[in-house]
């Protein structure tokens, strides 16, 4: 098959070319210029910052699962690696700039990602998915039990160092939000370039048929390890942002299996193999619990049982997952795409 045919097919599947960067750029402009004018610490601290961190993690997982078809149930482990690596680099190398710390956090996660991606060279499907659980449990155990990682702190909850960016203290919710936004914007741009290029097509080829990809001359093993590394890098940086900018504490407990599932749900609801989907899904997952607990407060009065709301939320989320998989397997991203086509048509 000639590369021209491949390219035409890839374009017809909605891989973005350079022209399609205009829309995302406008969105970025709104988030960077207009939204920071809002004076609400709650908006930045409780909604936008976690939204950005979850989006970045989902983006990383989508590269691995959506594009390359390797299902991972261990995303939270790589978030934890990123958070703890970032903490230790900033702690042990005095004067290390924050952005370098974040990059090192991502690189550490990438190295771990390659190690735990090695089984993918031999395992397929469910066998691989289950083996990624090994990452989840081992990393969480190691970070809890080896005290060096938490600087021999016995409380189990450690605080990140004060955040500075070139002598500029990131001490308010808006500033921390802008840090996240900048990092996420750059990494998102790179991801868009990655999936729209030859690598992106190689990933999709590996996902759709490993043997077929090999016949076409795609180096399957190298592609798999590469995407494990890139994905883990993204998820690692997301983990560092999550605990530095959002939680303001670093602890292994927050990065449990439920977090891994949450990231997986984000890309199912948002849309597999879609950059936009990671953001739409993350917005949905972050805002949904807030809406539900508001609704609970309104429906049941102020003294409502929050445990009850948690259970209802759980059932609701499970039902949504099933409904999405059933009715819209391509997720919110496809929904938005269709709306746009319809609007253009009228």
């Amino acid at each position: 098959m000639s590369s021209a045919i491949l390219e035409r097919q890839a374009n017809s599947q909605g891989l973005p070319g350079l022209k399609s960067f205009r829309g995302p750029f406008l969105v970025l402009l709104v988030f960077a210029v207009v939204i920071p004018q809002v004076h609400s610490d709650y908006l930045f601290d409780a909604i936008l910052t976690p939204f950005l961190a979850i989006s970045l993690a989902a983006l990383g997982l989508n590269l691995l699962t959506g594009y390359a078809g390797q299902v991972s149930l261990g995303s939270a482990a790589f978030m934890a690696v990123g958070a703890f690596a970032g903490y230790n680099f900033l702690l042990r190398i005095p004067g290390l700039p924050l952005l370098a710390g974040l990059a090192f956090a991502g690189l550490t996660a990438a190295v771990i990602g390659i190690v735990f991606g090695l089984p993918s060279l031999r395992l397929r499907g469910f066998y691989l998915a289950v083996s990624t659980l090994a990452t989840q449990f081992f990393v969480q155990w190691a970070l809890t039990n080896i005290s060096w990682f938490s600087n021999d702190d016995t409380s189990g909850v450690i605080s990140p160092p004060p955040l500075h960016l070139g002598g500029f203290a990131l001490d308010s919710p808006v500033r921390r939000y802008l840090l996240c936004l900048g990092v996420v914007a750059v990494l998102t741009f790179l991801a868009m370039r990655l999936v729209s290029g030859q690598t992106g097509r190689a990933l999709i080829a590996v996902r759709d048929s490993e043997l077929g990809a090999r016949v076409l001359g795609v180096k399957v093993l190298r592609t798999k390890l590469f995407i494990f590394a890139v994905s883990s890098f993204y998820i690692g940086v997301a983990g560092a942002l999550w605990s530095f900018a959002y939680l303001r504490t670093i602890e292994p407990d927050g990065f449990d299996l439920d977090r891994s599932f949450q990231i997986l749900f984000v890309i199912i609801i948002g849309g597999l193999a879609s950059i936009r989907g990671a953001f739409l899904g993350a917005a949905f997952i972050v805002v949904l619990p807030l809406l539900l607990s508001r609704a609970g407060a309104i429906l049941l009065g102020p003294g409502f049982d929050s445990g009850l709301v948690d259970l209802v939320q759980k059932i609701f989320l499970g039902a949504l997952i099933i409904l999405f998989l059933r009715l819209e397997p391509a997720g919110l991203s496809a929904l938005v795409g269709r709306l746009r086509i319809r609007r253009n048509a009228t």
Binding site: F261, I268, I315, L317, A319, I321, I322, L325
Partner: peptide, 18 residues
């Protein structure tokens, strides 16, 4: 199969919650 697996993941949330 992997879609079906994720369906059962959703299912487990519903059954546990209920």
């Amino acid at each position: 199969p992997i879609t079906l697996f994720m369906v059962t993941l959703g299912l487990s949330y519903i059954i546990e919650g209920s």
